[in-house]
Design a binder for these strands. Structure first.
Length: 115
DNA sequence: GAGTTGACGAGCA
DNA sequence: ATGCTCGCCAACT
């Protein structure tokens, strides 16, 4: 693909999520101006085809681990987050407001590196 | 080709 | 505050 499609952008931004931080579908969709957070979720579903996409760091707006059912094992997502120092209680990020990360910190001039 | 589904979000009752 | 509805747009049946 010569030009990056929306999932390529989603993958790129998701990879930029710092360790110990989480982002949301809406934040990524808003940053990429995709128009809908569902597209981000769908894109991340295909992220399993990729390897370096930390999809476990992407949660919904409430901080709930809604995508855990789509992981190889439903507990993998929570385990990985806790492993990064993120407290997860009842399928939800406890310190969500603190660990929340918005892609806008990348800057508006952020260019996706696509090979 | 048409209708339904979905890792969501915002608005409204 | 909780619950329901609508909008988004690509993929799937």
């Amino acid at each position: 693909m010569a030009q990056p499609s929306y999932y390529t952008l989603v993958f790129a931004v998701t990879r930029e999520i710092p360790r110990g931080r989480v982002s949301t579908y809406g934040a990524i969709a808003d940053f990429l101006a995709l128009g809908s957070a569902r597209m981000v979720g769908w894109a991340l579903n295909n992220s399993f085809h990729e390897e370096d996409v930390p999809a476990h760091r992407v949660v919904n707006r409430k901080g709930e681990l809604t995508g855990r059912n789509h992981f190889p094992t439903p507990t993998l997502m929570q385990e990985r987050l806790e492993e990064e120092g993120i407290r997860v209680e009842d399928n939800r990020v406890a310190d969500f407001d603190e660990v929340f990360w918005h892609p806008k910190v990348l800057g508006m001039d952020y260019e996706v590196k696509v090979d």
